[in-house]
Structures are given as C-alpha cells and as structure tokens.
Design a protein around this nucleic acid. Structure first.
Lengths: 195, 195
DNA sequence: CAAGATTGATGCCTCAATCTTG
DNA sequence: CAAGATTGAGGCATCAATCTTG
C-alpha cells in the first residue's frame, strides 16, 4: 500500500498533494521549499530548546549572548544592534537585556559617545554559558544533518544563501524590507523596492 | 563580474566567519545550513504576517484553517490532529479553536464515537478566508523564490526533505523525538532511523 | 523631526495540573 | 492507567506611545 517510490515521504509531500487535489488551479509548488523551511525551523527550535535546557538556558538567551560573544574583542553592542542581528523587536531586546542582566550574564552602561544610547557588555558569567551552550548545540546540529553527505550540506547551504542574500543585503532598513505587496488593496504604500 | 567571490554574501557567512575566528577549535559548519534555515524561516514568517494582515488574519489562524480545508471532504479534525499537524501544543490548540470559533471560522461539537473527543469543523466563513489567504500567500512565496531557477527550487526542496523525513517519519510519538540528554557524550542514543 | 531606548498593554505559547472517558 | 481535551499560571513577543538626545 504505502510502497511509494521515494517521492512521497515527508509531511510536506502529503500537504502539497492534498492542495493539488483540492485546489488544482493554484500552484502550491513554492511550499515544497518554504513550508519545508518553516517546518524544519520548528523542529530545529524544539531541539535547541531541549539542548539548552540542560544548561539552564533558553534559545533567546543564547541568541543574544552569542551575538555579544562574537563581537570580540569589545564584547559589547548596543540594544539596537542586538535587535537587528537577532531579527527581533527593539522592545523585545530591552526586556531580554533586563532579564540577562538579572542573571548576571550581561551588564548595561550608558554609551559615552551618544547620550541616547546604551552599551551592553558580556560578563564572564555569560561568556562561559554561551560557549558551553554553543558546543552542545553543534553536537545537536551535526546529528540533524546526519542524513546528508558533505556535498549535499554544502549544496543546501548555497541554495539557502541565494534566497537569504536578498533579505540580508537590503536588510539595513529596520522596517520590513518589503511591504505587504499587493494582497488585495495596495493602500498607497510600498514604493516597490527593486528586487 | 559576480562570478568569482560570491562566498561572503549573507549574514550567516559573516557569523560563521566570526565563530571560526573566535573559536577555531569548534566546527560550526552545520550553521551554514541550520542557521540559514532558522533565519529564513523568520523572514518568511514576517512576510506571512504582512500578507495575511491584509485579510485580517494571523499566520496561526491560516495554519489551522488550512489544515481543516485540506481535510476535505469532511472538513473536520480533532484538536489533537490539528495540534500534531501544526507542530503546536495541545493547550495551544484549545485556545486557538476558542478564538477561531468566536470569529465564526470553525465550530466545535462532541465526537459521536468517543466521548472524550471533540470534532472541529470548518465553517463557510473560514472556508472563504483560508482560500483567499492561501492565494495571497502563494504570490508572496513565489516572489521569495525568484532568485532561484526551477531546477534549483526542486533541488532545494529535495535536500530539505532528506532532513525532514527523519522527523516526520518517526514523528508519531508525541514526546520530543530525541531526549534532552547527552550534551557532551554521545553514549547510546540516536537509533539512526534508516532513511 | 529622527534615532535610540524604554514602558505598558495586549496576545499568544508553554507547562503543569485536572477532568472525563476508554 | 492511558488518551483526549481543557484550565490557569507564567513567560515571552509585538505594538503603540513616550521620553531623551542628536
């Protein structure tokens, strides 16, 4: 019965097949890439949560600490930098820094060059935590890619980059890089950024 | 022109380069795949939010309604089915169904075959909403993949499936497929599901 | 006014019970 | 006891408004 020839294997294959049956006039083939990306990201996030919980950390904590760790040798960034780097809201970052400071992982101090600004510095405590978490994470990630050959991993990374480059290149504007783009009523917005 | 050095282009290239500088002893190459997946998923989620907001819908609403829409011809599923299909918590699904029922998109009624169970049925209201949202989403997704040739899209989908199959195949057990154990010592776990 | 950061309100998700039924 | 669904508590994110400084 279920002896399909290699083509119908994961959940997305079944989803796309169902859409083609229900809405034959709609081309849902982009799902074969993007729904898989979403779904895989959710699985990955669950793994990250499990791995980090062994160290008493949450994924968002590692995200922030890792950003600071990589900013060596100063080990400090502004909240705005952190928000942009982690693709999160500015208000979210304020809250995150509060909690990380409470745990002694980072400390805040006023930016000497700009009185509006703040600098967030990584404490030794956070330094050790993030390095341990990262090592654990790499073991987990390595396992997740076990089904791929080295060449396939390289190829997969390159293909994903082709899509990401569009976002990260024009990524400077903190506003959503591309507007809602003609859903039903283009309400006089979105000057059509050149893709 | 852009033929030779297209190696350092997206954010993940810079991240990996920084880690190799800071922690040369740690192999972070899995990030070239998995960090890109995560990051792309976040970008994608933002787009989805923007697209659906034009229809007055949230991404999680479309997720649930789409699952019901594809369950034709009955157009009904149990909360547990929906939770599993959308990779979300059982409690989350209860809350979602509450809110969708308030909006008249779905309705709940007791399972005639199992008095513990509940059936969730798609209302005409939700039927129309999800079909419109899906059409808008496909336009958005198509644009996001514009940088790829058809062959590249196919290839990318296949490579992602190789990873997903491992999750979706053994996905039956509701417990996290792999325990939070072994942060440092790969002792005896990971039964290596035979692809 | 614009940029940077913060605050409070609101909404959604996760987790640990709890209740009912098989 | 196990499965299915629900509840309430707590945590985190998002949004709009605010305050300060360039």
């Amino acid at each position: 019965m279920t002896e399909d020839n290699l083509t119908h294997n994961d959940e997305i294959d079944r989803v796309v097949e169902a859409w083609q049956r229900e809405l034959p006039q709609l081309d849902v083939s982009p799902m074969l890439v993007l729904s898989r990306v979403s779904r895989l990201a959710r699985h990955f996030e669950r793994r990250r949560r499990a791995v980090f919980s062994a160290d008493g950390l949450a994924p968002w904590e590692v995200d922030v600490l890792a950003e600071l760790r990589r900013s060596a040798p100063s080990y400090e960034l502004s909240p705005g930098d952190l928000a942009h780097a982690t693709l999160s809201d500015s208000a979210t970052m304020t809250s995150r820094i509060d909690r990380l400071a409470d745990k002694g992982f980072v400390e805040r101090y006023p930016d000497p060059d700009d009185r509006r600004g703040v600098r967030v510095r990584l404490c030794p405590n956070g330094f050790r935590a993030v390095e341990r978490a990262l090592a654990d994470l790499m073991i987990c990630e390595y396992e997740m890619l076990a089904a791929l050959t080295p060449d396939q991993r390289t190829e997969l990374g390159q293909l994903l980059r082709l899509i990401l480059v569009v976002f990260d290149a024009q990524g400077r504007p903190k506003s959503p890089p591309i507007g809602p783009k003609l859903p039903a009523t283009p309400s006089s917005v979105t000057p059509t950024p050149g893709i």
